[in-house]
Simulated assay, not measured.
Amino acid sequence: MPGVIAYLTGTVRDVRDTSAVIVAGGVGYEVLCPAPTLAKLRVNDTAELHTRMVVREDAWTLYGFQDQDSIRLFDLLTSVTGVGPKLGLALLSAMPPHVIAGGILGSDSKLLASVSGVGKKTAERLVLELQNKVPEHLAAASGRTTAPVVNSTVGQDAVEALLALGFREAQVRAVISELLSADPNATADQLIRKSLGRLR
């Protein structure tokens, strides 16, 4: 489609609950982003986002992602019947790409259905239609795992605290596992605070 915005570089003007405003060439673009991307954006910093424009009769909506894996998975997820951009964004907000890939490859529809808005039938359809389409490097990264194990005491404490707040276990474990991989020395309080920014 002519005029499609595939990549956007500009200054972050505002960061909201589900979107950010990026100023490029004197124009402010509102870009809907998954929680991990939003968490890395800072007002007045320069943002570089891979984008997808979804055009409908009543709106042109721009979706932005900080890495190629997320946008590739977004494209795959939204290619499935009944999975629109909003649901694709919800999945990528709840879990990192390799965990979603692991759920698909491991036929773990329960993991996918743990995300708010994803029903049992939709989760089963994702598994059925995407099992042979997951990129090889994501398949390798996933190790075909479905529910990350949190071994540390600090991680378990954070998991239990978040479960007490009503979040779903599969989502919580996926986020805590990713945060601990990035910072093995994080305290339980730090893990909880960072997790709350990702769990929607």
Rank of each mutant, 00 (worst) to 15 (best):
A123T: 05
R173S: 04
Q131N: 13
V80M: 13
F74E: 06
L92N: 06
A164N: 15
T61V: 11
G106P: 05
R168F: 06
E136Q: 15
T153L: 10
V154C: 10
L163H: 07
L77I: 05
S109Y: 15
V127N: 05
A140D: 12
D108C: 02
K86H: 09
S114C: 03
L89I: 15
S109Q: 14
F65W: 12
L126N: 06
G84I: 08
G82P: 06
T153N: 09
H98A: 15
V150F: 00
E129H: 07
V99P: 01
N132L: 10
N132R: 14
P135R: 03
V83P: 00
L163W: 11
V154W: 09
T145D: 11
L165M: 12
D67Q: 00
V127K: 13
A147L: 15
V80N: 07
L130S: 01
D157V: 04
L87T: 09
I100E: 13
G102T: 11
Q156T: 11
K133A: 08
Y63D: 03
L73E: 01
A139Q: 12
S152N: 05
L92C: 07
T61N: 06
S142Q: 00
G155M: 11
G117V: 02
W60Q: 08
E129F: 04
P148Q: 02
Q68A: 12
P97S: 14
G102M: 08
K133E: 07
E169M: 04
S93D: 01
L138Y: 04
E178N: 08
Q171S: 07
K133S: 10
G102F: 06
G106I: 01
G84E: 09
L128I: 06
Q68T: 11
